[in-house]
Amino acid sequence: MPFQVGEVVEGTVLNITDFGAFIQLPEGKTGLVHISEIANTYVKDINEFLKENDKVKVKVLSMDREGRISLSIKKALPKPKSEKSNRSYEFEHHSNRNNNISFEERISKFLKDSDERQQQLKKNFESKRRGGGYKRNANY
Protein backbone atom coordinates (compact mmCIF):
# COMPACT_ATOMS: atom_id res chain seq x y z
CA MET A 1 0.00 0.00 0.00
CA PRO A 2 1.56 3.34 -1.03
CA PHE A 3 1.91 6.16 1.46
CA GLN A 4 -0.32 9.20 1.49
CA VAL A 5 0.81 12.74 2.25
CA GLY A 6 -0.28 13.51 5.82
CA GLU A 7 -0.13 9.88 6.94
CA VAL A 8 1.75 8.96 10.13
CA VAL A 9 3.81 5.77 9.91
CA GLU A 10 6.49 4.08 11.98
CA GLY A 11 10.01 3.76 10.64
CA THR A 12 13.54 2.94 11.67
CA VAL A 13 16.48 5.37 11.65
CA LEU A 14 18.94 4.09 9.03
CA ASN A 15 21.53 6.84 8.85
CA ILE A 16 22.18 10.20 10.50
CA THR A 17 23.84 13.09 8.65
CA ASP A 18 24.53 16.74 9.52
CA PHE A 19 21.37 17.83 7.68
CA GLY A 20 18.90 15.13 8.72
CA ALA A 21 18.13 11.46 9.23
CA PHE A 22 17.20 8.81 6.70
CA ILE A 23 14.27 6.66 7.85
CA GLN A 24 13.47 3.15 6.60
CA LEU A 25 9.71 3.00 6.05
CA PRO A 26 7.46 -0.03 5.57
CA GLU A 27 7.61 -1.64 2.13
CA GLY A 28 11.34 -0.89 1.87
CA LYS A 29 10.93 2.82 1.10
CA THR A 30 13.33 5.39 2.54
CA GLY A 31 12.54 9.00 3.46
CA LEU A 32 14.42 11.97 4.87
CA VAL A 33 13.64 13.91 8.04
CA HIS A 34 15.36 17.29 7.66
CA ILE A 35 17.09 18.61 10.81
CA SER A 36 14.40 21.30 11.14
CA GLU A 37 11.72 18.58 11.38
CA ILE A 38 13.38 16.54 14.17
CA ALA A 39 11.98 18.31 17.25
CA ASN A 40 10.00 21.32 18.43
CA THR A 41 13.21 22.82 19.81
CA TYR A 42 16.41 23.98 18.12
CA VAL A 43 18.47 20.97 17.02
CA LYS A 44 22.20 21.57 16.81
CA ASP A 45 23.23 17.91 16.90
CA ILE A 46 20.78 15.29 15.64
CA ASN A 47 22.62 12.63 17.66
CA GLU A 48 21.21 14.21 20.83
CA PHE A 49 17.72 13.23 19.63
CA LEU A 50 18.17 10.13 17.47
CA LYS A 51 20.45 7.17 17.05
CA GLU A 52 20.60 4.52 14.36
CA ASN A 53 17.99 1.75 14.66
CA ASP A 54 15.62 3.93 16.77
CA LYS A 55 11.96 3.33 15.98
CA VAL A 56 10.21 6.64 15.27
CA LYS A 57 6.80 7.82 14.17
CA VAL A 58 6.97 10.15 11.18
CA LYS A 59 4.45 12.15 9.19
CA VAL A 60 4.73 12.09 5.40
CA LEU A 61 5.11 15.72 4.27
CA SER A 62 5.59 15.23 0.56
CA MET A 63 6.58 12.81 -2.19
CA ASP A 64 8.04 13.92 -5.49
CA ARG A 65 8.09 12.27 -8.92
CA GLU A 66 11.59 10.90 -8.38
CA GLY A 67 10.31 8.96 -5.35
CA ARG A 68 11.89 11.14 -2.65
CA ILE A 69 9.83 11.20 0.53
CA SER A 70 10.02 14.16 2.93
CA LEU A 71 9.18 13.31 6.55
CA SER A 72 8.66 15.06 9.89
CA ILE A 73 9.02 13.68 13.39
CA LYS A 74 7.84 16.85 15.14
CA LYS A 75 4.59 16.96 13.15
CA ALA A 76 3.92 13.32 14.06
CA LEU A 77 4.08 14.11 17.80
CA PRO A 78 0.77 14.45 19.63
CA LYS A 79 -0.18 18.02 20.45
CA PRO A 80 0.11 19.01 24.12
CA LYS A 81 -3.15 19.82 25.91
CA SER A 82 -2.31 23.41 26.81
CA GLU A 83 -0.08 26.16 25.45
CA LYS A 84 1.88 26.24 28.71
CA SER A 85 2.75 22.54 28.47
CA ASN A 86 3.76 23.06 24.83
CA ARG A 87 7.00 24.73 25.94
CA SER A 88 8.03 21.94 28.28
CA TYR A 89 6.90 19.17 25.96
CA GLU A 90 10.08 17.90 24.40
CA PHE A 91 11.03 15.27 21.87
CA GLU A 92 12.80 13.23 24.52
CA HIS A 93 9.41 12.08 25.86
CA HIS A 94 9.23 10.04 22.66
CA SER A 95 12.86 8.99 22.51
CA ASN A 96 14.13 5.74 23.95
CA ARG A 97 17.32 7.44 25.13
CA ASN A 98 16.17 9.65 28.03
CA ASN A 99 13.08 7.92 29.46
CA ASN A 100 14.95 6.59 32.50
CA ILE A 101 16.46 9.94 33.53
CA SER A 102 14.64 11.75 36.33
CA PHE A 103 13.89 15.46 36.29
CA GLU A 104 16.47 16.07 39.02
CA GLU A 105 19.14 14.27 36.99
CA ARG A 106 18.28 16.33 33.92
CA ILE A 107 18.53 19.58 35.91
CA SER A 108 21.82 18.45 37.44
CA LYS A 109 23.23 17.63 33.98
CA PHE A 110 22.01 20.97 32.60
CA LEU A 111 23.65 22.91 35.46
CA LYS A 112 26.91 20.99 35.09
CA ASP A 113 27.00 21.60 31.32
CA SER A 114 26.14 25.26 31.85
CA ASP A 115 28.94 25.71 34.40
CA GLU A 116 31.43 24.04 32.07
CA ARG A 117 30.41 26.34 29.21
CA GLN A 118 30.66 29.43 31.44
CA GLN A 119 34.15 28.39 32.61
CA GLN A 120 35.26 27.84 29.00
CA LEU A 121 33.91 31.23 27.90
CA LYS A 122 35.57 32.97 30.84
CA LYS A 123 38.86 31.21 30.13
CA ASN A 124 38.76 32.19 26.44
CA PHE A 125 37.87 35.78 27.27
CA GLU A 126 40.66 36.13 29.82
CA SER A 127 43.27 34.62 27.50
CA LYS A 128 42.32 37.12 24.80
CA ARG A 129 42.65 40.01 27.24
CA ARG A 130 46.08 38.91 28.44
CA GLY A 131 47.99 38.07 25.32
CA GLY A 132 48.27 38.70 21.66
CA GLY A 133 46.74 42.15 21.73
CA TYR A 134 48.22 45.60 21.17
CA LYS A 135 50.65 46.54 23.93
CA ARG A 136 51.48 50.12 24.67
CA ASN A 137 55.00 51.18 25.34
CA ALA A 138 55.26 52.51 28.91
CA ASN A 139 58.05 54.97 27.97
CA TYR A 140 55.80 57.50 26.23
Rank of each mutant, 00 (worst) to 15 (best):
T12V: 07
V13Y: 02
V13F: 03
L14T: 00
N15R: 09
T17H: 08
F19S: 07
F19M: 05
A21C: 01
F22E: 06
Q24P: 01
E27H: 11
G28H: 10
K29P: 06
L32I: 12
L32R: 12
V33P: 01
H34Q: 10
I38T: 05
I38L: 09
A39F: 05
A39D: 07
N40C: 07
V43I: 09
K44V: 10
D45F: 12
N47L: 12
F49N: 08
L50I: 11
K51W: 03
E52G: 05
E52Q: 09
N53H: 10
D54R: 02
K55C: 07
V56F: 06
K59M: 14
K59S: 07
L61S: 06
S62P: 02
S62T: 06
M63A: 12
R65V: 04
R65M: 10
E66S: 10
G67E: 08
G67L: 04
R68M: 07
R68Y: 09
R68Q: 11
R68H: 12
S72Q: 02
S72R: 01
S72I: 01
I73T: 01
L77N: 09
L77T: 04
P80L: 14
S82K: 12
K84Y: 14
K84I: 13
N86M: 08
R87C: 05
S88Q: 04
Y89K: 01
Y89W: 12
E90V: 03
F91P: 03
E92W: 15
H94W: 14
N98F: 15
N100I: 00
N100K: 11
I101P: 01
I101H: 05
I101L: 14
S102C: 06
F103N: 12
E104G: 00
E104A: 08
E104F: 02
E105Q: 13
E105H: 03
S108K: 11
F110H: 13
L111S: 11
D113I: 02
D113Y: 09
S114I: 02
D115W: 14
E116H: 10
R117L: 15
R117S: 15
R117G: 12
Q119L: 13
Q120R: 13
L121V: 00
K122L: 04
K123H: 04
K123G: 00
N124F: 00
F125M: 01
F125T: 00
E126F: 04
S127G: 03
S127T: 04
S127E: 15
R129D: 02
R130L: 08
R130Q: 07
G131F: 08
G132M: 11
G132F: 10
